[in-house]
């Protein structure tokens, strides 16, 4: 379980990105952080793998305060997916996928076996695509490689920052379906940042709506659809909150 307890983040210069955020994500469940740009959703995500440090409050994973863990170790046990995949352009798809196993010092044979598994898992053909460079792949393929890279060392937690934000609607739909399939099979604890309401409601078990650095609404997709809250309704109609 990931738990955020009264977490605040103030950037140098005084901008308060988060104030008093508390969240809990149960093992094997997916939390979506929904909001407009600047609401603090990406900040929240990056606090969990300590790409930034909280100014106040406590974050724990499986009951252990992440402050007490080595950040490098912590990150190698958390999958990380970003918008447009963020693949290393000088590495082939396969080398990208094997990044974390390489950092962990796996043998080439073990890495190679794992690569094949992962390509199959994310629905990519290993023989034709493994040795391609990112600029020789489509946007959807790149995103799948990015996901495979995040899952490479089988981390219990995966963080995803607008993973499908830059894709066309058809590809996005396909990948979302694929996500639901993987989620059911892998049972990872996931945090998904998105500004797309439909995506949040479709993929997550819990959706937290962030406004100006605090949690304005939280609930299950079903619960949120049923609510009378004007804020949620504004989001659902696709307008600005």
């Amino acid at each position: 379980m990931i738990a955020l307890e009264s977490v605040s983040k103030t950037y140098p210069g005084g901008h308060q990105a988060l104030s008093d955020v508390s969240l809990e994500i149960n093992d094997g469940e997916t939390l979506a952080l929904l909001g407009t740009s600047g609401c603090g959703k990406t900040t929240t995500l990056r606090l969990i793998n300590r790409l930034i440090e909280a100014s106040a409050g406590r974050i724990s994973i499986g009951g252990r305060d992440i402050e007490t863990l080595d950040p490098i170790e912590l990150r190698r046990n958390i999958g990380y997916v970003v918008q447009e995949a963020g693949l290393f352009p000088h590495m082939t798809a396969r080398l990208n996928v094997e990044t974390v196993p390489r950092l962990l010092g796996w043998s080439p044979q073990r890495r190679s076996e794992r690569s094949r598994e992962l390509f199959a898992l994310v629905g990519l053909d290993f023989t034709t695509l493994a040795d391609r460079y990112p600029n020789q792949l489509s946007g959807g393929q790149r995103q799948r490689v990015g996901l495979a890279r995040a899952l490479a060392a089988d981390p219990p937690v995966v963080l995803m920052d607008e993973p499908y934000g830059a894709l066309d609607p058809i590809t996005r739909r396909q990948l979302q379906t694929h996500f639901l399939d993987l989620k059911a099979r892998l049972k990872k604890t996931m945090v998904l940042v998105t500004h797309d309401v439909e995506e949040a409601l479709r993929l997550a078990d819990t959706v937290a709506i962030l406004v100006d650095g605090h949690v304005a609404e939280i609930g299950t997709p079903k619960g949120l659809r049923a609510t009378e809250s004007s804020l949620v309704n504004t989001f659902l109609r696709g307008g600005d909150a």
Partner: peptide, 20 residues
């Protein structure tokens, strides 16, 4: 973004320098 990903995947500063 690439440096951010490198860090997020658990690379040390010197690994980011050498590998990315």
């Amino acid at each position: 973004r690439l440096l951010d990903v490198g860090r997020g995947l658990g690379m040390t500063d010197s690994q980011i320098l050498q590998q990315v």
